[in-house]
């Protein structure tokens, strides 16, 4: 717990590093195999796949350890961040969606939130976990289990559907208007279940941006 008085009282606005370096898609692909990471993360989320988790652990934990060690200057805290981050990856992987962004971004967010709460605990002696409220990006998935109530303005929604990409229209129409289950849709469209789920979610998000819909109760 080495936080000096100086660090504590320093104006936080003066000491921030700024990263302007832009990363091209090419270098991203050269450096990190996103597809593989995304597959592992999806396997953990959907099938609780322990081997996939082990792969993720071996890829991320040394890097998390290095980042946390340079940030906190003690190995004990760095270990804690590895442990906490990887635990959250295990327990929250079902919230990850390959369509929403890179797996590295998702894991980074988990790690950053863990570090933020831990830093607060050290500096301000507060046990609160504010990070999930400040960066609620991990729960973009929570609309996937919801359904439009039957009486809702179908007409209005139908009109808006045309504004969606064809692939998203397919799942929305199948799920909400033909009342197929997500599993049936996956089979029917010959797609992985995860893809159906994320397309639904994306489509719903887009629709919600356009119309103020009251979402119904949870739907299994």
């Amino acid at each position: 717990m080495q936080v000096t008085e100086q660090q504590r009282t320093e104006n936080p606005l003066k000491t921030l590093p700024i990263h302007h370096k832009r990363i091209t898609n090419k270098s991203m692909n050269d450096e990190i195999n996103h597809k593989e990471l995304a597959d592992w993360l999806t396997a953990v989320g959907q099938d609780r796949d322990k081997q996939a988790f082990t792969n993720l652990f071996k890829f991320f934990s040394p890097k998390i350890l290095r980042i946390s060690s340079s940030k906190f200057n003690t190995q004990a805290i760095a270990n804690e961040i590895v442990q906490e981050t990887m635990t959250n990856v295990w327990r929250k992987a079902h919230l990850y969606s390959a369509d929403k962004g890179a797996p590295t971004t998702w894991v980074y967010t988990v790690m950053r939130n863990v570090s933020f709460d831990l830093l607060r605990k050290i500096q301000s002696k507060k046990e609160d976990t504010l990070s999930d409220d400040i960066w609620p990006t991990l729960d973009v998935a929570d609309e996937e289990e919801t359904e439009f109530a039957d009486h809702i303005e179908n007409q209005k929604v139908l009109a808006l559907l045309d504004s969606l990409p064809e692939k998203q229209q397919q799942v929305i129409k199948g799920f909400y208007f033909m009342e197929m289950s997500q599993e049936q849709l996956a089979q029917h469209l010959n797609l992985p279940l995860g893809t159906v789920k994320s397309r639904l979610r994306l489509a719903l998000n887009k629709l919600k941006q356009h119309v103020d819909l009251q979402l119904g109760d949870n739907h299994d």
Partner: peptide, 15 residues
């Protein structure tokens, strides 16, 4: 965008 970049920078280096 910044988060995406920062994530790449963080995880691209070999340990």
């Amino acid at each position: 965008n910044m988060t995406e970049e920062q994530a790449e920078l963080s995880f691209e280096q070999s340990p």
